[in-house]
């Protein structure tokens, strides 16, 4: 098991290196540079522009800049934002809990509804329920996030007035940041209504962000379940006189979970990508929105550092998924 872990870890390193390169090159291929964007419409004399670029070290050949960046990274320094003059790591750490909170809630919704929906669809293959679930899943999967988000806002916030339009908590409440997770902080503050307010702010963005993972999980669970249900060991389980709940919920599900877990892991990457749109629509102060803002400002260090940190988290999650995979499927665990 330890060797298995180590091997997975070694595979991650080149990927990590690749991400630094991609992030570094990608942001510099965009037209414009941070100085020009700071100057805005007034413009700036070429001399002053060159001077400021040199100040920030952007005048050196790109390969040298990359070398310096790697050296800086090796020292554990993710750089400093050009705009806010704050260390990238610190900005990331401040905003990250908001994204995590949103992603976790989205994932909970996706798993909580996707898994049972897929399971029931598989056991009642060809039924009305099956067709309904699969059609909805396809629709959900194909729906552009920004459009879906706006639809929900119009309906639930605009017409029904049930949920707030944007933000993380009502301005009526103010409390200290303890964990950065609004649900926990509002609860700890003990202020009446604060927790409910945080909840109601979280619900729509979570649904929007969770829709695609939900659809993918439901479809994957259904197909994995269908495959497993025709296996000999499921017949054995039934021949033992076990009830359908136990046959499906224990014997079949454990095996069907193997591909589903992999898909859930991959969806974490999708979640971060989706968070960018979702956070922008709902003005959610997370890293997705921060990344978009940084790209617009050509804040090179922030974009590089942010992408790298996001990539690192996605990779770590996938590593954990790989380990879980080994735990669920003993054949994997023992062959390594």
């Amino acid at each position: 098991m330890f060797v298995y872990f180590l091997r997975k870890l070694i595979v991650i390193l080149p990927t990590f290196f690749g991400v630094t390169l991609v992030a570094f090159v990608f942001i510099r291929t965009l037209p414009g540079d941070p100085v020009m964007l700071m100057a805005g419409e007034r413009g700036m004399s070429p001399e002053r522009h060159a001077e400021l670029m040199a100040e920030m070290g952007f005048d050196k050949p790109i390969i040298v800049q990359y070398g310096l960046y790697l050296k800086q990274l090796a020292g554990g320094d993710f750089g400093t934002s050009i705009i806010t003059k704050q260390p990238v790591l610190k900005e990331f750490a401040t905003l990250f809990p908001a994204t995590i909170e949103l992603s976790i809630c989205a994932m909970i919704i996706a798993i909580f509804f996707g898994l049972p929906a897929g399971m029931i669809a598989a056991t009642r293959r060809g039924s009305v329920f099956d067709h309904t679930v699969m059609t909805s899943a396809l629709t959900g999967y194909s729906m552009p996030i920004f459009w879906w988000g706006l639809l929900l806002i119009i309906f639930f916030s605009g017409i029904l007035g049930w949920t707030p339009v944007s933000g993380r908590v009502s301005l009526l409440y103010y409390f200290e940041t303890v964990t950065g997770f609004m649900l926990i902080d509002s609860f700890l503050s003990g202020q009446e209504g604060a927790f409910i307010s945080a909840m109601s702010h979280l619900i729509l963005p979570s649904i929007v962000l969770g829709t695609i993972p939900l659809a993918v999980i439901a479809r994957q669970t259904r197909s994995a379940m269908l495959e497993v249900l025709s296996e000999d060991y499921v017949r054995t389980a039934r021949a033992k006189g076990l009830g359908p709940m136990r046959v499906i919920g224990v014997h079949a599900l454990r095996n069907a979970m193997i591909p589903v877990i992999t898909v859930i892991g991959l969806q974490v990457g999708v979640l971060f990508a989706g968070a960018i749109l979702t956070e922008t629509i709902f003005s959610w102060p997370g890293i997705g929105k921060w990344m978009v803002d940084s790209i617009f400002r050509r804040d090179y260090p922030a974009v590089q550092g942010g992408l790298l940190l996001i990539a690192a988290i996605v990779m770590i999650v996938n590593l954990v998924v790989d380990l879980l995979y080994g735990l669920i499927n003993p054949q994997i665990r023992h062959t390594d």
Binding site: D232, Y233, R235, T236, A237, A239, K240, N255
Partner: peptide, 24 residues
């Protein structure tokens, strides 16, 4: 019927390698 099968009336199958659940 489930009280009888697996208890009073039991069965073994052709393929031992696939008849047992690989995850348990």
């Amino acid at each position: 019927l489930r009280k009888i099968i697996g208890c009073q009336m039991a069965m073994i199958f052709q393929e031992p390698m696939t008849s047992l659940n690989p995850c348990f």
